[in-house]
């Protein structure tokens, strides 16, 4: 474990917590893409499938973190699609998730480290995570604005994988560790946030709201 991965995981936890708090406190999921949250839930379940297969006692923080990610993302989907369904902005959350899932699944079958079920699921989860934020960014571009709290969520969510890139550079240099698939997907994922990062740094930090040119 290095400082970059530690802060990356903390940033990821913060993002999940910020979103849950936003929905729970405002009792509304306006401005939140349910599809992106569904995709994240799928990512966690397919990536941490080993938790279900050979359940080992929660002997380390990693197992606990995996369970937190899975349960928090499923609970977030429950809030969006059931509890606060009336506030779900289905009209604007209109990006076809199939256009993200099918290519990720196909690519996972073509480009992977080992052609076995667990590895294919892990690879699918990595590819899907890289594009899972697209419905959320698409929704913001459709509505033309993002609530400040949602911007903080997106900043934490984008920072997590950006910090992982620093972690991979660190591990390449000090541990000769290379996980090419995770690195390439992580770079693509972070690039998708660049536009938002620019808006966040120039606007939200100054206390303004993000309003996209309609």
């Amino acid at each position: 474990m290095n400082i970059f991965r530690l802060f990356g995981d903390l940033s990821h936890l913060a993002a999940i917590a910020i979103l849950l708090l936003k929905i729970w406190k405002t009792r509304s999921c306006a401005g939140v893409s349910g599809k992106t949250q569904l995709l994240f839930a799928v990512c966690f379940i397919t990536r941490y499938i080993d938790l279900f297969l050979h359940f080992v006692s929660l002997y380390n923080t990693e197992k606990v973190m995996k369970l937190i990610y899975i349960s928090a993302s499923v609970f977030t989907c429950y809030l969006i699609f059931f509890k606060f369904k009336a506030t779900y902005d289905g009209n604007h959350d209109s990006m076809r998730a199939e256009f993200l899932i099918v290519p990720a699944a196909g690519l996972a079958c073509l480009i992977n480290t080992k052609f076995d079920a667990i590895e294919i699921l892990w690879t699918f989860s990595i590819y899907l995570e890289a594009v899972a934020i697209l419905p959320q960014l698409f929704l913001i571009s459709k509505t033309g604005e993002a609530e400040t709290i949602t911007s903080h969520y997106l900043f934490a969510q984008g920072s997590y994988r950006a910090l992982y890139i620093l972690n991979w550079i660190y591990r390449y240099h000090y541990e000769s560790h290379v996980d090419t698939i995770a690195i390439v997907a992580g770079v693509v994922q972070t690039i998708l946030y660049c536009d938002f990062f620019y808006l966040y740094i120039t606007k939200v930090v100054k206390g303004q709201k993000i309003v996209l040119p309609a």
Binding site: R5, D9, H12, E62, M65, K66, Y69, T113, K114, E119, W122, Y164, N167, Y172, E175, S176, H177, V178, D179, T180, A182
Partner: peptide, 10 residues
């Protein structure tokens, strides 16, 4: 460089 098969990151 060592390519990982098991994945030790979240």
């Amino acid at each position: 460089k060592r390519i990982l098969t098991h994945h030790d990151e979240l």
